[in-house]
Amino acid sequence: MKRKSLILLALSLIFVACKNNEESTQCNINVNFSFNVNRDSLERDSMKYVNDAGNKYMVTDLQMIVSKLQLVHSDGTTQVFDKSVHFVDLADTSTFTWTIEDVPIGIYNSIGFVFGLDSTMNVTGAYPDPPINEMIWPESLGGGYHYLKLNCKWLSDKELLPLNFHLGPEQMIDGSDTTVIDNSFIVTRISDFEISSKFENVFEVNVDINKWFGPTCIIDFDKIKGVWIMESHEIQEMARENGPNVFSMNKKTVK
């Protein structure tokens, strides 16, 4: 039994080697995330950031989910990698790179991905394995997963207070309002580019943390003191307004 499988393994190695000979029509792309505040690289645990409302804060943890990488081909067709999901954790630099495999080479007009999970993917229990299972979102708020956990401490009248800026699909806990605020959105970058196996295909995503709190909708920590963000329609909606400004995407030129 064991011997047979070893022979099979060796044979399949030969197979794989031969297949590589054909001119490759697919390749991998890497999406690299970096976290910043006004262009400076984000420093964890450092009480040096000030938002548009003037609140002084630091970031202790950040976890987020991105998904459904999509590419628009020059002929107008869209290629959606609808199973692709990636978890990014500020505490673990190995999560900063999201690799998408088997992307058809060619000329494209735009690239995008979903911040969070759209409603087709955001189903309770869909991701039972760690690390995504630590992102669970209460069933009574619609279930599924947190899109973002941005954990901060901020200084109010010299007292240090926690701020859990947690985003996800939100509905009223007591059932009084069943509209779901889904603050997932698509981050896109538009302009022609080539995906090719001749060079590394790298896209850089800058995440400017401070832009979650303004300027489109100013989120003043002092005013939302005592509000449970996960349960607040209002704050989830403000985050949806601010979100698109948080992300910016570039293609890296690699020789």
């Binding site: 630590e134 669970i136 449970w228 349960e231």
Partner: peptide, 24 residues
């Protein structure tokens, strides 16, 4: 499972993390 309630799930899981810990 709720923030305004006991607020245990962020660290201790729930139905969709039935280990009842994040192990963090």
């Amino acid at each position: 499972m709720t923030e305004e309630g006991g607020d245990c799930f962020h660290c201790h899981g729930g139905a969709a993390n039935p280990l009842f810990t994040t192990n963090k």
